[in-house]
Nucleic acid binder design. Structure first.
Length: 510
RNA sequence: GCCGCGUUGGUCAAUCGGCUAAGACGCCUCCCUUUCACGGAGGAAUGACGGGUUCGACUCCCGUACGCGGUACCA
């Protein structure tokens, strides 16, 4: 094969929320394309009109945008191979299907859904629980192979509903080299005569993926492992259509499994175990049911993407935190693992934590703003940024800033006095009274001067510094939590700190 | 049932025939800190099984078991 521009595609069907496995497929596509200065195409696989969900397409694009995985060509931005929505390409597929029929690689089938159902129940046995429409069965069914030419022509002429099926050869070996799995081989007699063109004139995935990958000059095709069993159908189609030389290289990605037990991770597992599975919140327009997304759960897109990249890939060095640019530079298919990976939400949180730790405080303040707004609190951005910087090392999510720093925005109304009462005495009350007066006179209310005055006074009054710190903390925050006390005091400022000492004193001595 | 793919600690995983089997998450202990974290130092915990091939197998081959995927006019 000669040098040609790398072109990859992600082809979701707009039927609902975007699963994290889908995002990972996009990511691998994207990384591969960018690494090779290639194109990343977004194609909408909307050939099943019964499953079409309005809004899903826009939602998917919004997810990709959030992740920073924008397509070079898509229904939204267009491109040289438009249209990118398969429903809008409908006439194209029939042409190729008919071409296959003429060449003897496919045939018309007139069986009704009821007749297919009948065939399946009739042929169903203990050893063969799912009978196929294959080389053996097709002779007994109503199609252009079992019927005479005249009968077929007549049926076609009076507009009998029909599909076009691929005629799988009887006993041929089909093999290819998967970029991840290596040599993979199938015998054609184990695969059925897949429908290529449905009765409504729409192609099935099998036909559409081949035709569009060809027409859109796709060079590398990445998809989930669940597609591996139908690969021989696609391989044969490339051959029968005469495009074998242009067939993309396949890479079947390992599945993302549920954390407990086995099997593919599904939306239901997330609901059941309390973590998101979709990239963003998704509301089913029919039922109104809301499924939570990573974005709304407080994940930073960079962390989400990084986490997904490590689910099935690593560069062998042990490094786990990668920027998008590093991922693009280092990604390689031969380091993608073959086996599925169980999703670990704890590890996902750790990734987010890492990104939170390294995030700019002003950025965190901006992201936290909506939370404050929701609580009816207004605060200066710089103030919020300072707080974010103070508490972020104990947060997994942006929203946690509230849990670890709420007292910066509202003075305590209750105090954990039981934590100080046992060791409390009049000297300590005196200390805080005196210290409050000292603070009043401080011209520089900085961390260093506040702390120094605290320690100086404690020493002169002969009280252990350590025994005063917890009470002070509780005066400022109401409980045993928060960043270092003097940092809290400095951030709160002179007035508020003194105020809280007085209120706290009252509560403790009450 | 049949076909395909897979199988290293609880989880993600390195190892491409030399292993005293990395690292990370989580868990536990200790230090730091009279909050909680962060940080630091330790710890417990792994090659499904049986045959080959080989001087030597976690690594290669075969079989078995187990798991997963597929077996739709869904993708």
């Amino acid at each position: 094969m000669q040098q040609q521009k790398v072109r990859v595609r992600f082809a979701p069907s707009p039927t609902g929320g975007l699963h994290l496995g889908g995002v990972r497929t996009v990511l691998f596509n994207y990384l591969f394309a960018k690494q090779h200065n290639g194109d990343f195409v977004l194609r909408i696989e909307d050939t099943d009109q019964t499953r079409y969900v309005p809004g899903a397409e826009e939602y998917i694009m919004e997810c990709l945008k959030w992740c920073g995985l924008n397509a070079d060509e898509s229904p939204l931005v267009g491109g040289p191979y438009a249209p990118y929505r398969q429903s809008e390409r409908k006439p194209i597929y029939r042409e190729y299907a008919e071409q296959l029929v003429k060449a003897g690689y496919a045939y018309y089938a007139f069986d009704t859904p009821e007749e297919l159902e009948e065939m399946r129940t009739r042929l169903k046995t203990e050893e063969n629980p799912s009978p196929q429409y294959n080389h053996a069965a097709r002779a007994q069914m109503k199609n252009s192979i079992s019927l005479s030419e005249a009968e077929t022509a007549a049926l076609l002429k009076n507009g009998t509903r029909h599909v076009i099926r691929i005629k799988m050869p009887d006993n041929e070996e089909v093999s290819f080299t998967d970029l991840i799995r290596g040599h993979v081989q199938f015998n054609t007699s184990t695969v059925d005569d897949k429908v290529l063109l449905k009765a409504d004139g729409m192609p099935t995935y099998h036909l559409a993926v081949v035709v569009d990958d060809y027409l859109m000059k796709i060079t590398h095709a990445f998809r989930g492992e669940e597609w591996l069993p139908s690969a021989p159908v696609h391989l044969l189609l490339w051959k029968y259509l005469g495009w074998e030389a242009d067939m993309p290289q396949w890479a079947h990605l390992p599945l993302i499994l549920k954390p407990d037990g086995n099997g593919k991770l599904s939306k239901r597992d997330g609901d059941r175990l309390g973590f998101p599975v979709y990239a963003m919140n998704w509301t089913d327009p029919k039922t109104g049911d809301l499924t939570k997304g990573f974005r709304e759960n407080g994940f930073l897109p960079e962390a989400f993407v990084n986490m997904l990249a490590m689910l099935g890939w690593n560069d062998g060095s042990g490094q786990e935190i990668f920027s998008m640019d590093e991922l693009i530079a280092r990604f390689s298919l031969d380091r993608v693992s073959k086996s599925g990976a169980k999703f670990d939400y704890e590890k996902a949180k750790w990734f987010n934590h890492q990104y939170l730790l390294n995030a700019d405080n002003n950025k965190l303040a901006t992201l936290f703003e909506p939370v404050l707004k929701e609580k009816g609190i207004t605060a200066a951005p710089e103030y919020v940024a300072t707080i974010a910087g103070l508490v972020k090392d104990r947060c997994d999510f942006v929203n946690d800033i509230w849990n670890h720093g709420f007292f910066f925005f509202q003075a305590p109304e209750t105090w954990d006095v039981t934590a100080v009462k046992p060791k409390w005495n009049a000297d300590k009350t005196q200390f805080f009274m005196d210290w409050a007066s000292v603070l009043e006179t401080l011209s520089d209310f900085s961390l260093a001067s506040v702390e120094e005055s605290f320690k100086t006074l404690a020493t002169s009054m002969n009280i252990k510094v350590g025994e005063l710190q917890l009470p002070f903390r509780i005066m400022l925050t109401g409980g045993k939590f928060g960043p270092p006390v003097f940092n809290i005091a400095e951030t709160l400022g002179k007035h508020e700190t003194i105020q809280r000492i007085m209120n706290g004193l009252k509560a403790i001595n009450a």
